[in-house]
């Protein structure tokens, strides 16, 4: 288990398990992203280069992006991929609920930095058609996981 220190919000998550689930579908998902000249989660917006006090808010926004607009828009008829997506989505939902607790206890403050970084990520996301954006951001899940891993 990994303890994520996001400013004064601390959550426990099974990053290794999530990493392992994603690694089973990563190559096929990334292969379906034909636009390799464009990247949505860029290093400029990374979690670990964000002020600790803003990390919880940025991560909360990113998890909501995945839950609301990525997992449900990724279309596949392959049951193995479907199962892995379900596993990832439910693990993300668990993390989102933990962050919601931090939000309830006022330890998930949205400062200017988090708001601006998420606005940029969203603008990249919305430059693409919803289905293509979902494929690309799902393919970039390893980037998000590394951000979380390095957000010590």
């Amino acid at each position: 288990l990994k303890i994520l220190h996001l400013g004064s919000c601390v959550i426990v998550t099974n990053l290794q398990e999530i990493q392992s689930e994603f690694s089973e579908i990563r190559d096929s998902v990334q292969a379906s992203d034909k636009n390799i000249d464009f990247r949505i989660l860029r290093n400029t917006g990374s979690l670990q280069d964000t002020e600790p006090s803003d990390r919880c808010c940025l991560l909360r926004h990113l998890l909501r992006l995945y839950l609301d607009r990525v997992f449900k828009n990724y279309q596949t008829s392959d049951y193995h991929t479907l199962r892995k997506l379900s596993s990832l989505a439910n693990s993300f939902l668990t993390m989102k609920k933990d962050l919601q607790l931090c939000h309830a206890y006022m330890t998930c403050h949205c400062g200017e930095e988090a708001t601006e970084k998420y606005r940029q990520i969203l603008s990249h996301f919305e430059q693409l058609e919803p289905q293509a954006a979902a494929v690309k951001v799902l393919g970039e899940l390893d980037i998000l996981l590394r951000w979380m891993d390095e957000a010590e």
Partner: peptide, 21 residues
């Protein structure tokens, strides 16, 4: 089966069990 995610976000989706389809 469907996890909480499916029941909240895509309630029409059910996933065939890995071993018992």
């Amino acid at each position: 089966y469907q996890g909480e995610y499916e029941s909240l976000y895509t309630s029409h989706i059910w996933i065939p069990s890995k071993w018992c389809s």
